[in-house]
Nucleic acid binder design. Sequence first.
RNA 1: GCGGAUAUGGUGUAAUUGGUAGCCACGUCAGACUUAGGAUCUGAUGCCGAGAGGCGUGGGGGUUCGAGUCCCUUUAUCCGCACCA
Length: 918
Amino acid sequence: MEYNFKRIESEWQRRWREEGTYNVEVDESRPKFYVLDMFPYPSGAGLHVGHPLGYIASDIYSRYKRQSGFNVLHPMGYDAFGLPAEQYAIQTGQHPALTTEQNIARYREQLDKIGFSFDWRREVRTCDPEYYRWTQWAFAEMFGHYYDNTVQRAEPIGKLVAHLEAHGTEGLDAAQTAALSFTAAEWAAMDEREREQALQNWRLAFRADTQVNWCEALGTVLANDEVKDGLSVRGGYPVVQKRMKQWQLRVTAYAQRMLDGLDTLEWSDSLKEIQRNWIGRSVGAQVFFDIEGSERKLEVFTTRPDTIYGVTFMVIAPEHEWVGELTTNAARADVEQYVAQSKLRSERERIAETRRVSGVATGSYAVNPFTGRRIPIYISDYVLAGYGTGAIMAVPAHDSRDYAFARHFGLEIVPVVEGGDIEKESYDAKSGRLINSDMLDGMDVKEAIEYMFAEIERRGLGKRLVNYRLRDAIFSRQRYWGEPFPIYYKDDVAHVLPLDKLPLTLPAIDNFGPTAEGEPPLARVDGWHTPEGYPYELSTMPGFAGSSAYYLRYMDPHNGEALVGRRADEYWRNVDLYVGGIEHATGHLMYSRFWNMFLYDLGHVCEPEPFRKLVNQGMIQGRSNFVYRIVGTNRFVSLNLKEQYKTQEIHVDVNIVRNDILDTEAFRRWRPEFADAEFILEDGRYVCGWGIEKMSKSMYNVVNPDYIVDKYGADTLRMYEMFLGPLEQSKPWDTNGIDGVHKFLRRLWSKFYSREGGLIVSDEEPTRAELKTLHKTIKKVREDIENFSFNTSVAAFMICLNELGDCSKRAVLEPLTALIAPFAPHMAEELWHVLGHDTTVCDAPYPVCDESYLIEDSFEYPVMVNGKLRFKQEYPLSTSAADIQADIVKAEGTQRWLEGRAPKKIIVVPGKIINIVV
RNA sequence: GCGGAUAUGGUGUAAUUGGUAGCCACGUCAGACUUAGGAUCUGAUGCCGAGAGGCGUGGGGGUUCGAGUCCCUUUAUCCGCACCA
């Protein structure tokens, strides 16, 4: 009987759905395992063959865990709010809700064909009000809390208010935007508006004026991780820096905990490193410099207080708040011009012009507190307003940027670390002996840094400080298709909606662009205010809002009382295995950890970290094919003849090419302009060129999973995607190799059914060799699954089948069916029932290797002479190394290769190798 | 510039973790069968060489009886950060 994958797959998918095979409930009697995929953003293009890669791997692991006795939670949903749907809406006028709905339907259809073991009853969509109610709730909770550094966790804002009432800011140690200072009496004297203004300095969700990434084309601000190289990640539009009042999340409060938490996670080192760099912890000193003729002191942050004797000038950022104050009348015109100029530069220009020295003197002077010397204060955009204090002490001798600046402006360069030659470049040394530094002279850099920390504190010049590169997350977006903020304004004071007023649903509109006044689209909505008439916030939340806690909702998706109920949370706890792309390293994976830690502080969840183990699947690239048109003609020349002509390389649809041979008839039909194409063939065939590129429509290299499923079946697609190579590695999709996997499945099928259609499974006792093959395979496949090495497990199945030959014995085939079930679930299910079972193969215990079948009693040693394999010699494994050593010299082969010489040394590694050194 | 990763046949890859490099597939070649299919089956296939044999894991060096694997160095590609004080 033929392997009719279409019948088998549609039938079992239907039965799984009808019987709820993959439904899962809390069950305290069994151990849990939570396997999660990063949910997709349902784009209009549908899935290509690269998208399911991670889903297939996690599905295999889920099924394996289930067969191993775990109660497996394996859900799926959609990250449905976001820019592309809205951009599409602006262009076409179609409501994003509608296009999103359509895209989700298409995604679901595609996913269903692949045979995943999702419990679809638990589906979440971030744009569903019943879901985003909890996104709004979490935001409201953040608004209602601050981060208390003394206890290292979020605390209710009421505790802060109590402190301010009693002591003002005295003795307060909390994560804050700026260092505010007022007394209890001053607090008491504030009105509601002033108080709220002050509280925003500590709230974990707060509104503040800040430097933001503004994208004019998208009409919205963007978070740092949404900008790359000065361009928006979505769309690639220019981004400029702008000061705006925005809602933000105080993720910096959790910087240290997020850093420390990394050590507890089973994530790849590279991913942890990316997050560590993003958090960017650096230990240094805060130092205050006196300003000549002013009461104020200029605060800087430095990691190299040891070099303070080499400070010959200071630099502040053009956005520094004291620019006006520090500028003397004589310098004012120049400074104003410079500041205006640097404001105009886009982020992209700024990056491109890195290393070009620019700046202007303020005319003011500071005093080096250690040398007592008068040093000029400059303004330059190589100092960033957003890092540290936006001001630096410049040490030109030992910092290349300061050096370039000093050279350009002819400033003094004083070396303070021995060893460099500062004539041509700075000496950015992290070790060495201090010179020209008074009491530090002769100390090593490390020693001097420690000494200076103490000295700075002793002299009351500042203190030791930890700085983070991590910025607070800009949380508002001036657009429509996102979660509305649960915020309304009363006399411009922000108030938050309580849970029983949530969700605040997104109103329907029909024009998705900004208003004429440049207000967000929600400004168009009449009645966008509370019943009392107080206006709601006009911006909406960013894409990462909805994806920050979705994994919690899957645990308890229909709970109307809480994001996740206590019983579900305490059972499922956190994600045991998370599979997704590395592109979320500094976005989603940071925000989710922050969000989860916050909910943990409040006691809503019982685990501080959301994702225990994380696997990053590689990108599937496209394998493009090319044809070569002779310039100015409609003639196409085969790859190996193209050098003889002047040709132009043209992408050709990979679906009309097989093994790099072009289907010329299909090519003529492909596009009208090729209808009368002529070909110059080689060996009667047209050979195409190929290259690896991103999979995209414009390269004509997109392969649709539906097409593969239709032609080869879901089981073949699943196994082939795994066979392609290591999961974590990026690799090109090449449909050509798929035959090998398909052939394997057909051969497996033919172990059960003869060509004529009869079942040929016998009850004969398997031979020892057959059992050895079976158990070897069981061992290998189990190990490979545990190591996420799915490509080698597919190879192990193929080897197993090759070794079994025409063995069709039940005692071998039955465990093999259970073993392959996670990979090819449809076929395994069918065969499982053919073997007479009436329960699902998903619950068949995963086979265990019986090591006794693998034990060998003798071993054929490869015998090397001077490191080259010369012959083989068999010894019982019980033979000792000494006995082998004594015996091997006498062996016929040894004698032949020794050619009368005496061996210098004989190395015997039992069970591995014999090497004779002559 | 800093940090991380990768490099093996025509292609995707594998290698009991320092022990016979190239498993398993694709492709190619040869053969069988044939209802002529892009089916199925069998065999060969790293490179050079008629053969014996030699050479082979990006390049160079080292440790070792033995290196794809460890160390040093260098090149190329990819990823992350990037005037971070």
